[in-house]
């Protein structure tokens, strides 16, 4: 067994040689490595590049990283990539905005009033039980095969986690704070604005991050099922022609979108919830 124990720096070591105490090993994971988020992906990329350069990978199935980059550049300048990206972004943004609004409004109505809760909460829970992607055929019948049904599906996927988390946070308000508000003579509106809403923000951000991820997830599915433009369409076409590099370009862009939007939400969250001090900070 190897133990990495260090001794406590003893200033007058010659006086107390017998009681040198071993410092207890901490149970916390310790200090974070520099740039720890990038280490894993960078290693993966290096392996991929090395294997491609060594000719160990079938370029038809897994093209080299530089091939993917070259294809991306080519699609950007000479192809439809800019319009495809814009279309996808637009769909995700519309769907997300709609879902966010619906989720927040419904959660507020249901979390702040008993009548609202009776009307809304059960219905949303029922909606949650139905897999949203299973609604696609019905929505195509109702809304046609254009943009509207895609945005509607994305909005549903987004609103559910936002509603659930915000509603739970609103109705789970600490009873001690309710008492405090009564003692301090807050009006109902002041109580909601100064205690309930700020207290529910951490829960809201959990829902928001799930919602952002959900919007990309549903977008990928929708664009592969029936679309005439967009990143998913691009990838679907590439599949027909065996262009694995184009598929990888599409995946890469989806990944970047997801990463950027998630980071943006986390940035806002850190700003808004700056009063929180957690283990991760």
């Amino acid at each position: 067994m190897t133990t990495t124990t260090t001794t406590v720096p003893v200033t007058a070591a010659e006086d107390t040689p017998a009681v040198r105490r071993r410092r207890r090993r901490g149970l916390a994971p310790g200090k974070r490595l520099p740039a720890s988020r990038i280490v894993g992906p960078a290693l993966f990329l290096a392996l991929w590049a090395a294997a491609s350069a060594a000719g160990q990978l079938d370029p038809g199935a897994i093209p080299a990283p530089w091939t993917v980059l070259r294809t991306a550049g080519h699609l950007w300048t000479a192809g439809t990539l800019p319009t495809d990206m814009l279309t996808s972004l637009e769909r995700a943004a519309y769907g997300f905005a709609l879902g966010l609004t619906a989720g927040v409004v419904l959660a507020l109505a249901s979390g702040l009033s008993r009548i609202g809760e009776a009307l809304i909460d059960g219905t949303v829970q029922l909606n949650r039980a139905i897999p949203t992607l299973g609604l696609i055929p019905l929505f195509i019948l109702w809304l046609g095969i254009g943009e509207t049904f895609k945005i509607a599906i994305i909005a549903i996927v987004v609103y559910i986690p936002i509603y659930l988390n915000l509603h739970a946070a609103l109705s789970g308000i600490d009873h001690r704070y309710v008492e405090l508000a009564e003692v301090q003579g807050l009006s109902r509106l002041q109580f909601i604005r100064q205690i309930v809403i700020p207290g529910a923000l951490p829960g809201f951000f959990v829902g928001l991050r799930l919602g952002v991820t959900g919007s990309w997830l549903s977008l990928v599915v929708l664009e592969q099922i029936n679309a005439t433009s967009g990143l998913g369409y691009l990838m679907f076409q590439a599949q027909n022609y065996g262009q694995s590099d184009v598929i990888l370009v599409g995946l890469l862009i989806y990944g970047v979108f997801g990463l950027v939007s998630d980071s943006a939400v986390r940035l806002v969250e850190r700003r808004v919830l700056s009063w929180r001090r957690t283990l991760s900070s």
Partner: peptide, 23 residues
């Protein structure tokens, strides 16, 4: 009437002065 509870019951999302001014 003012009440002081066993826990300070300060709202963690408000700075100290804003907590004092609650209500």
């Amino acid at each position: 009437v003012s009440v002081v509870f066993q826990d300070s019951r300060l709202l963690p999302w408000r700075r100290v002065l804003d907590n004092v001014l609650l209500g």
